[in-house]
Design a protein around this nucleic acid. Structure first.
Lengths: 285, 285
DNA sequence: CTAAATTATGTAATTTTTTTACATTTTTAG
DNA sequence: CTAAAAATGTAAAAAAATTACATAATTTAG
């Protein structure tokens, strides 16, 4: 845990003087790491040993060690935060903000991820007779991306952008078929309907969607990224990126489950592209 | 810049003794931040003032200040590294690795990004008569995603997955049309050809591809993410995520350029979806 | 190639900073 | 209200870092 958070969480257990020290540090940690114990004691209006005791109470070896921890916490505490784009931002700023909030979103998605569900999904996918990927809007391209990965595995795969085709496909599904439905909100009516249809026909439905959503409830199992969507610009951004990473994870899990021999096939698929490409110049790399 | 990187980049300018200090620190920075100047001097086999001079050379106030900088560098220097999935990895491990290398890739993409090119691309896009997005394979879904963003802007947009349609579209293009081509490698022959065709017809071609690739050379301008692709599993992974973030950036730049009134339109597009969705329960949020 | 000048490094003293030992004050429990 | 415990401060000691200066190594001009 970050030492600043630690100070905050333990502040009630501190004595009066120690609390003074804590407050001074929280108020301006940047300044604290550049102060000597004497300066800090004076600012907090306590004696130097009090500051030292304060440091020890936080499981550091002493004041210099405490400053080191604090410095690390400051560096670590702000790396990828969700910063919203402002209308006066120049290109530097909005580029930085978008990259950072995307990374922050992935970090959150990773933390919230239920690995057990991933494992179950890989189980289901490896045993599937056919796999269908469906999504609408921004999730349609996620579905297409999933198709692009899974068709390499030599399993029958489907992907339709058209809701009518999706419906017909689900009506024809049977036991052993797996339908993967992508939807950030899980509130898109037509997708909820095709999930119901697929399950009525004994297909297994995996939802990459919010757990408690209408769609989530219709699925056999659910993988949710729980990424808060940035609604500033009314466009899906981080959520679909998180979904794509989940696709990568499922595809990776799939290939690992199938063993090393299987991976040679993947190389063959890739090599088959060679004639349609310009060769890279010879040399290292 | 991270102080460890700084040491590395300046190591040639150091004197013999200072280099000894640098090497000891690089070999084990964790240990360095917990050593006194005396210990470090002994380990590096130099005198204490040499260590101190070394610190000053790196624009720090002295040894303790140097340790602070180093501690901060360690805290955010190693967060997201590109770790490769190993065949014995369990789900926890491959999930962590995939998330981390994706984030690492985005970090690299951000650092390598030429903001000037982004600005130019936004210029071109805001002035476009029509915009077409083309890609093949994994980049096809990136193109589709771009379509999903830019159609909201009330500009005529195209996106075909079919190379023949792409070709025909480029043949019909004229001055004022903008063609955006997605390709990680920039070596896919058909895409290089359509870039040539589009330019022959006076369209402006923007490549989201490698700068020095055959495709890159055919484009009017080029935005490259320079993300090293993880080829372990023979599937595009991080590269397409980086492309999608670039799409987000271009779309954001576009809306900012158009001003606040324009953004009301985006809300309208989003609101139009409401009838096809299940309402969220009332309440906060 | 040599001598002067410059630069690099180390020694030892000085200063600063941190820590310890102990005294005093404050708080708490009976 | 008093005794014990806890908290805080004072002052001295220890540790760490820095400075001033001396010596050694290297470079450069002739």
């Amino acid at each position: 845990m970050n030492i600043l958070e630690k100070i905050n969480s333990q502040i009630t257990t501190f004595s009066k003087s120690e609390r003074k020290v804590a407050e001074v540090i929280i108020a301006n940690p940047e300044q604290a790491i550049h102060s000597s114990i004497a300066t800090l004691a004076k600012v907090a209006d306590v004696s130097e040993p009090t500051v030292n005791r304060f440091c020890r109470r936080l499981d550091t070896k002493g004041f210099p060690d405490f400053k080191l921890h604090l410095a690390q916490g400051l560096a670590n505490g702000t790396p990828y935060v969700n910063r919203h784009v402002d209308e006066n931002d120049g290109p530097d700023e909005y580029c930085a903000k978008i990259f950072e909030s995307t990374m922050a979103a992935l970090d959150i998605a990773h933390r919230n991820l239920d690995i057990g569900q991933i494992n179950r999904a890989v189980d289901i996918l490896t045993q599937a007779k056919t796999i269908s990927f469906f999504g609408l809007g921004a999730s349609a391209s996620v579905a297409q991306d999933a198709l692009n990965k899974f068709f390499r595995f030599n399993v029958p795969v489907n992907c339709f952008e058209d809701i009518v085709m999706q419906r017909m496909s689900c009506i024809n599904s049977t036991d052993g078929d797996v339908v993967v439905i992508f939807s950030h909100t899980g509130r898109t009516k037509p997708l909820v309907e095709i999930a119901q249809i697929a399950r009525q026909n004994d297909a297994t439905v995996i939802g990459l969607t919010a757990k408690d959503s209408p769609l989530g409830k219709e699925c056999n199992m659910c993988i949710s990224s729980d990424v808060p969507e940035d609604t500033d610009l009314y466009m899906p951004m981080a959520s679909r990126i998180a979904q794509l990473v989940l696709v990568d994870i499922l595809a990776t899990g799939f290939t690992l489950r199938r063993g090393p021999k299987f991976r040679d096939n993947l190389k063959k698929v890739k090599d088959s592209l060679r004639p349609s490409r310009f060769e890279k110049k010879e040399g290292f790399n």
